[in-house]
Design a protein around this nucleic acid. Structure first.
Lengths: 195, 195
DNA sequence: CGTGGAGTTGAATACGATCAACACCGGTGG
DNA sequence: CCACCGGTGTTGATCGTATTCAACTCCACG
């Protein structure tokens, strides 16, 4: 919870009193690795702020293969947007990759936050533009780049995540199989052997 | 411009006076098919509302191949988010697919719109969540679905766009070559021949 | 210990890309 | 009015990248 407060204070001029009001709308929770917080079909409007640990969102195809949409380490938000914001049944899973402490918020929190603290609305818009921009770039990279290029740009963009999740999840995020990622890494090691 | 006014009125309770103020910040323009409005490296903060016609945003790879990020028919917004909102050099092209009438807005417009009309901030957030949700689904589909599945979901989601742009642009949007799309269509026609 | 998940490697396969040829317009200019 | 032209779409043959399936190693964890 203190992490959450610090996060808010870092990004928006929120008073202690305002935080008090807001914190009534949220519930801090701890979840162990492997716990599934959201699954397709769920109709909860929960969103999750990660204070500690690492979460992921993923979809599964008809063959049961997982495809990772997003990782969320400390100070990130995660959730199924359709469910959180639009009240639709969720289409993704959200689960815990590393034992996590999260702050659970619901739709009401987001509305209240904007009333209570107008500056929060501005920051929220900033955040949304930012995620939109990153998703655009990811789309561009899925359309244009090879497996190797995508891998390099991933380790450049999210070096910490890269070190904290198993390789098969990185592969799933990149849209390739674990075997292919293994070979890509081998090939890169070979290339860079002569420095 | 009347299209733009109607668009705003449809989505937010804006008064004529407020619209007057806002319209000072924007400039309506007409552009012919083929005109390039933004190219990588540009540092303008222009965004475009499409009143008529059809625009697209695309990136090019080192081989000069185009990869379409987004189509924007009537009543859609388009622009390079990094340039519009973050003041970075653009990374995408924006050009005109069908002779278009657009309303050009800049960063200042977006800030002013929120001051002048608080309800606009709410609608803007809604819009951002919506585009984020759609981009997430597109990412999921690029990760999980075959060429054929992506094509079917595209014509289901954007039937009008599908009819208005050349096939090679649809292919580019789907992340496949025009040849492959042609074969996918042929195969679908064969399958559905027996109804 | 031993068990199961993660990572690696190999061989065969499949899907889409590439290269090339050609048909089909729609527009332009002679 | 027609000949020409460039861009679009189709089809075929070949190629390449990543997938699939399988076997094996290596740990972390019970």
């Amino acid at each position: 919870m203190t992490v959450f407060k610090k996060y808010l204070q870092d990004h928006t001029p929120i008073t202690d009193e305002q935080f008090e009001q807001l914190s009534r709308e949220v519930t801090p929770r701890s979840y162990p690795k492997g716990r599934i917080l959201v699954k397709p079909g769920d109709t909860s409007d929960n969103g999750y702020f990660v204070s500690k640990g690492l979460l992921r969102a993923y979809a599964t195809d008809e063959k049961g293969k997982e495809h990772i949409i997003q990782f969320a380490p400390e100070n990130w938000w995660i959730g199924d947007r359709g469910a959180m914001y639009f009240g639709e049944p969720a289409t993704f899973y959200v689960d815990v990759v590393e034992d996590a402490e999260v702050v659970v918020v619901n739709r009401n929190f987001m509305d209240r936050a904007q009333e209570i603290c107008p500056a929060y609305a501005r920051y929220n818009i900033y955040l949304l533009h930012n995620t939109a921009r990153h998703m655009q770039q990811r789309i561009a990279s899925l359309l244009a780049a090879t497996a190797e290029e995508r891998y390099l740009s991933f380790i450049h963009m999210y070096p910490n995540v890269m070190l904290r999740v198993p390789q098969l999840m990185v592969a799933s995020y990149l849209g390739i199989t674990p075997e292919t990622l293994s070979r890509v890494r081998k090939e890169l090691a070979r290339k860079n052997f002569g420095k």
